[in-house]
């Protein structure tokens, strides 16, 4: 839908995309982490590669597929939401959450497995970054799950319908953008931590 149509729909001012500013800033800070990680790796590539091989690449790959699938369901929800089919949007968001819940399980298993075999933040520099990057990403994921949980409730049931629908559409738009960012960041994190050092 072009911007002109949105303005004609009666919204006094379309400000949902301002979340793009947050996304750009958040990506920048992750970008900085990636560069610092690679710069720290410069002096000790063997240690970083050896540590990376202790991670289960298959689990990281599984998590990438889980997030892509969840992101896709949420993108789809956004498409039907724009067309006004909120019942379908709610259902798709709920499916997106259900799929994404598996990400938490897999990540939780990985953390448990690593911590119980004595691999912690202070094991070496690679694992400091492993826990920092995946940990901060995990916080983003948890916030995203809460946002999806709110979106799965659908538009406010008691507010006047036009108002409730306009506000739901705005939140659906912003919330799904945030969720795609969580997916997008995992792609670089997965490549950096699991793939670059594999074999």
């Amino acid at each position: 839908m072009p911007a002109a149509e949105l303005a004609a729909a009666g919204a006094p001012r379309e400000r949902a995309p301002a979340i793009w500013i947050f996304i750009a800033l958040d990506c920048s800070s992750f970008g900085l982490f990636f560069v610092v990680f690679m710069a720290q790796r410069l002096g000790q590539p063997a240690l970083f590669d050896h540590s990376s091989q202790q991670l289960y690449t298959a689990l990281g790959f599984l998590n990438a597929c889980i997030l892509i699938t969840s992101s896709w369901l949420v993108a789809w929800a956004n498409v039907v939401g724009r067309q006004g089919d909120f019942a379908q949007a709610k259902k798709l968001i709920a499916w997106g959450m259900a799929v994404a819940a598996c990400f938490g399980l897999v990540k939780g298993y990985e953390y448990y497995e690593k911590l119980s075999s004595g691999v912690t933040v202070s094991t070496n520099e690679f694992f400091t970054f492993y826990y920092a990057l995946t940990g901060i990403h995990f916080v983003h994921y948890l916030v995203g799950m809460v946002i999806l949980g709110v979106l799965a409730q659908g538009p406010h049931p008691y507010a006047p319908p036009d108002q409730a629908h306009a506000s739901y559409r705005k939140w659906l738009e912003g919330g799904s953008l945030y969720w795609h960012m969580v997916d997008l960041l995992w792609i670089f994190i997965f490549s950096l931590l699991y793939l670059v050092g594999a074999r």
């Binding site: 750009a24 920048s28 790796r41 590539p45």
Partner: peptide, 16 residues
């Protein structure tokens, strides 16, 4: 951002 991050990752890997 995508371009710079990928270039930096590859460049720093190459340098190492």
């Amino acid at each position: 951002w995508t371009l710079v991050c990928s270039a930096a990752i590859f460049g720093l890997w190459w340098a190492a």
